[in-house]
């Protein structure tokens, strides 16, 4: 059995020396203070939720597989913080983070992951298929690249309905090699659809390094050939994500067409819980955990800029932890669906 994930405790604290800087206010923050708090809270929520999923999986409390988002929190949170409730996203097999960031509820997500009737999909979908249409989550997806058509179609729908809703497609470096990316992104570019393609380049598709199967170093480079703007962002920096997505959203809402944003990131865990990770070195993973933990980077920023005291951040973290634990209890206590429900929901 694998060790308890590192980062399973709260992110490392600021050193006392650096803390002093909180008194010298920076001239301007990269995002309003309340937005920073919100992003810190959301990222903590995702981190703590995923740690609990690890635990729930390891204790055999959930069926199926669990693909954890730990390490990539800044991508989902930076992106979704720039969106409205009525904007759309499509997510992936590694979707818990996207769904939480877009407004998914901890308890109904956990119930779904455990296969319970109270879950978002009434136990029919599980971890890889969480959806909440009421907040624009058009669904996680078990098919790599499965979100391209749906997200682009939602963007087309906005345009046809004269709505200013935008549509975000999250996809991996692996998914970027699916042919449907070319087909759909081309249409978005040709027709100026309000779509934003967020490539989460965590450098591996399952066990294969993306460089081994991908002709370009930067997936954002493909944007040029497809006729849209391509941007590379540090996916561990939630503020950089927020900034880029804000620009893309402004453009999309005002008829300026799609953007492709490549977030350079890393999954701190294996492809799924239980993956032995023979395809990468411990040092590599450790480097990312030490230097690129998105939650630590944000909390450092908040402390350095006098937005927060470390104790305040810790208090939030603990509060979120209690909420997550409540969601686990909710999931555990919720009843399994009765077998006859298998026959419901097929046709409208």
């Amino acid at each position: 059995m694998a060790k308890k994930p590192s980062g399973s405790k709260r992110p490392p604290k600021k050193s006392a020396a650096k803390k002093k800087s909180k008194t010298q206010r920076m001239p301007s923050l990269r995002a309003p203070a309340d937005t920073l708090w919100l992003m810190y809270r959301k990222m903590s929520e995702i981190r703590l939720f995923e740690e609990q999923v690890w635990d729930v999986y390891t204790r055999g409390l959930m069926p199926g597989l669990a693909h954890l988002y730990i390490g990539e929190e800044a991508v989902a949170v930076g992106t979704c913080t720039a969106l409205r409730d009525d904007d759309y996203i499509t997510s992936t097999h590694r979707g818990h983070g996207h769904c939480l960031a877009k407004g998914g509820q901890l308890d109904r997500m956990m119930a779904e992951i455990m296969g319970k009737e109270a879950g978002y999909c009434r136990g029919k979908g599980g971890s890889m298929h969480i959806a909440d249409m009421s907040v624009g989550i058009l669904g996680a997806n078990g098919i790599v690249g499965g979100g391209f058509g749906i997200a682009t179609g939602a963007a087309l729908s906005s345009k046809l309905r004269n709505s200013d809703q935008v549509s975000v497609c999250f996809f991996g470096d692996g998914a970027s090699n699916q042919g449907i990316m070319l087909e759909t992104v081309n249409m978005a570019a040709a027709w100026d659809l309000p779509a934003i393609y967020i490539c989460e380049n965590n450098q591996y598709g399952e066990h294969t390094p993306y460089q081994a199967v991908t002709g370009v170093e930067d997936i954002a480079d493909r944007a040029k050939g497809l006729g849209l703007e391509g941007v590379i962002v540090d996916g561990s920096d939630v503020l950089a994500m927020f900034d880029s997505v804000n620009q893309a959203v402004d453009k999309a809402r005002t008829g300026g067409g799609p953007t492709l944003i490549e977030a350079k990131t890393y999954r701190f865990h294996g492809h799924h819980v239980g993956d032995a990770q023979t395809y990468r070195t411990r040092d590599e993973a450790e480097w990312w955990r030490t230097n690129k933990d998105p939650i630590k980077l944000l909390s450092d920023y908040m402390v350095d800029n006098g937005v927060a005291k470390q104790e305040e951040l810790d208090a939030i973290y603990e509060q979120v932890e209690r909420e997550v634990l409540n969601a686990i209890e909710f999931g555990k206590d919720a009843p399994l669906p009765p077998p006859e429900q298998a026959y419901e929901d097929l046709y409208a």
């Binding site: 296969g115 319970k116 136990g123 599980g126 077998p339 298998a342 097929l346």
Partner: peptide
């Protein structure tokens, strides 16, 4: 059954 395969074991 003429259904997509559901996730939760009591359904599946």
């Amino acid at each position: 059954a003429d259904l997509p395969i559901p996730f939760s074991p009591p359904l599946e």
